[in-house]
């Protein structure tokens, strides 16, 4: 299912990725499913609380996820997925990403280097957890 994300929200993700560099950043994308498309209405930053190696790992704690889910529901929206950055690495999910992924959620990955974000792609875990399907990003 395509993920529609406007330029403003793309800009927020890029900014977060640049600020966090060389560490990974992460956050939630909230919005709604409409006419076969996931429409992002807002992006919310999360702290990367992974205890170490934040240059190649990120973690969003469960209570933060719960808070995002509740905050989205109060606004008649839902959490569509999460973004994170891959510093100096392609915008493709790693084996570590796959092992930790949930179905349904969109996983947007931004490849970021010293000069900023070079690529952003979106992925959804396959039902059988064997890999990902790429989702079309629509602006």
């Amino acid at each position: 299912m395509p993920l529609k994300i406007g330029r403003g929200d793309v800009g927020h993700i890029h900014e977060h990725a640049r600020e966090a560099y060389p560490e990974e950043c992460a956050g939630a994308m909230v919005g709604m499913n409409l006419d076969g498309m996931k429409i992002v209405v807002d992006v919310w930053r999360a702290d990367n609380t992974h205890e170490e190696e934040r240059g190649r790992r990120f973690l969003i704690e469960p209570l933060k996820i719960k808070e995002f889910e509740e905050k989205a529901a109060e606004r008649d929206m839902e959490v569509l997925g999460f973004y994170h950055s891959h510093p100096d690495h392609p915008a493709e999910p790693s084996e570590y990403d796959r092992e930790h992924a949930w179905p349904v959620y969109s996983y947007v990955i931004a490849s970021v280097g010293e000069d900023g974000v070079t690529e952003m792609r979106s992925w959804v875990l396959k039902d059988d957890r064997s890999g990902y399907e790429e989702e079309q990003l629509v602006s």
Partner: peptide
């Protein structure tokens, strides 16, 4: 009981 996700990932080295 609630099942609550944590979200983790990151690039491979």
């Amino acid at each position: 009981l609630s099942i609550i996700p944590s979200i983790a990932g990151g690039r491979c080295k």
